[in-house]
Each structure stands twice: as C-alpha cells, then as structure tokens.
Amino acid sequence: MSLRKTILSMVIWGLLASAVGLCVNLVHPHKIEFIRTPPPPTVDDPAIPDPIEIDVLMANNFYAMGEYLFVDSRPRVQYERGHIEGAVNLPWEALEKYYDPLQPVLKSKPALVVYCDGAACDSSHNLAKKLIQKGFPEVYVFFGGWEEWKEMDLPIKEGLS
C-alpha cells in the first residue's frame, strides 16, 4: 500500500471514529457541549474595588479561625487532584455552570478567600473581582495559592469535598 493510500485510509477511518464519538455524546450520561463556552470576561469596572491580597501566613490564620470559606478557582480536574481542605471549587473558566448551585454555600460564610495555583495564575484575582461585583462584602485573594499551601504542609484533601 502506498503512503498516500495509507494516509487516506487513516483520515477516512479517523473521521468515522470522530463521528461515532460525536454521536455517542448525544446520549452520554456525562455529555458535554460540542463547543466549549469561553471563560467569562474579566471585570474591568474601576468602580469595583480590587480584592485584598493575603500571604500564606495570613491565609493560615484565616483558615484556623474557621469563619472564612476558601474558594478554589482552578478547573475541577485540578481541584480533584488536591485542594485546601474544606475549600469549595468554583472554576473561573466555568463560572456560570458552578456559581448557582454553590451560591448558598458561598453566602453561608462572612468572608471568602479565593486561590488558584500560585502567583503566576490570575483566575483567583478574576474570580475575586467577580464575586465582589456580585455583592460579596469581604473577598480576599491568597496569592501564594495551592503551591505555597502545599509547600507549608498545611491541611489538604484529594477528591471532591
């Protein structure tokens, strides 16, 4: 068989398998949208104050006090691999999907501490600003995030909380 025929055969069978995958999604119990919804736009309104940034020591103090709800803004897969114990997951990139069911939990605590991977990621800052816009009175960003929390050997949990 020539290389050209091999490539043609690969493409045709590949397209067939792709069609099967797309059809199966229609009846899949964990079906997803064919086209992923892009992350929400960031809040650029200057009237919305920036969230207060806290370091790991302050975050640990807040954690020990027990009155602050830790909010993990990373995608669900990363959250399941490990997160701050007791934190809830509100992925920035799928905010609309997760916000409504989580709203009562978010409102159950007087203050929120939002974090993502670490200083290099910006989803915690974006989410915190969005939460301030939605009317949450006290929202902090723990800028060291998951990486710093792990390094300090503070309480973590794997899987869903």
């Binding site: 590949g14 398998a17 792709s18 099967v20 995958g21 797309l22 199966v24 999604n25 997803i32 949208e33 064919f34 086209i35 992923r36």
Partner: peptide, 12 residues
C-alpha cells in the same frame, strides 16, 4: 476546539 477534541480523540 477543546470539547470537539475531547469527544473525538478517545474514539480515534
């Protein structure tokens, strides 16, 4: 493209 790849790649 993310979801389209997620739905087709495993079947390929």
């Amino acid at each position: 493209l993310v979801n389209l790849v997620a739905l087709t790649l495993p079947w390929i």
